[in-house]
Amino acid sequence: MALLEVMNVGIAFGGLQAVSQLDIKLEKGHLYGLIGPNGAGKTTVFNLLTGVYRPTEGDIILDEKNITGKSPAKINQAGIARTFQNIRLFGEMSVLDNVKIGLHNQIKYSAFTGIFRLPGFKEKEQEMDYKALKLLKIFDLDTVAQSPASSLPYGKQRKLEIARALATNPKLLLLDEPAAGMNPSESEELMNTIKFVQKEFDVAILLIEHDMNFVMGICEHIYVLEYGRIIAQGNGESIRNNPRVIAAYLGGD
């Protein structure tokens, strides 16, 4: 049984069919890519998977549980975490606190315990600090743990978003253009980090990216989306030579 099974999912905004007949099957612990020309509906697919949009048809099954139409928070708790194309961090909070919010459902104590500093508070907070710093270290962010998240440079903000998503202990991680705005050496480094994360956390990753070297470099299986439909899928080599994909990107008949 696949980790995530998307069956015949579609969404229409009024008369506009943004995504239709979407079928995706993701296996545990693998790296997948989702590419397509601008406006193909890639981010809409992410929003469908994470519950931001409710599909007008079809079913989404995660780990044999139907998560179609659940709220984003519930879907995150079920095991899908994501990053955003336009970075969404908790800007006024520290880098460390951003990751600690990711740990919100992993390490729990009641608000009452928090207010009255009852036994358990200190241990749980220390456990959170420890786990959060461990995650930050992977992304080389542990040295700026106390800075406000909004003060980080762009590339680091992207990494922090990934760290925060990983903190929620996902089975599936969705990355929306993780390498956007990074220079070649930074995106090379990010590629290695993503590979490392996939192995270390045994998490399936689906990423949207326009940088083809990046996608071809790390993704084992690639889906190509055009006008809200999957037009091709396969490994890097077969996608590169697929006439429909070339036509979608370069235009053709």
Binding site: P72, A73, A81, F84, I101, G102, H104, T168
Partner: peptide
């Protein structure tokens, strides 16, 4: 939106 996506 991010808070929701982080499971809050």
């Amino acid at each position: 939106i991010a808070a929701e996506a982080t499971g809050i």
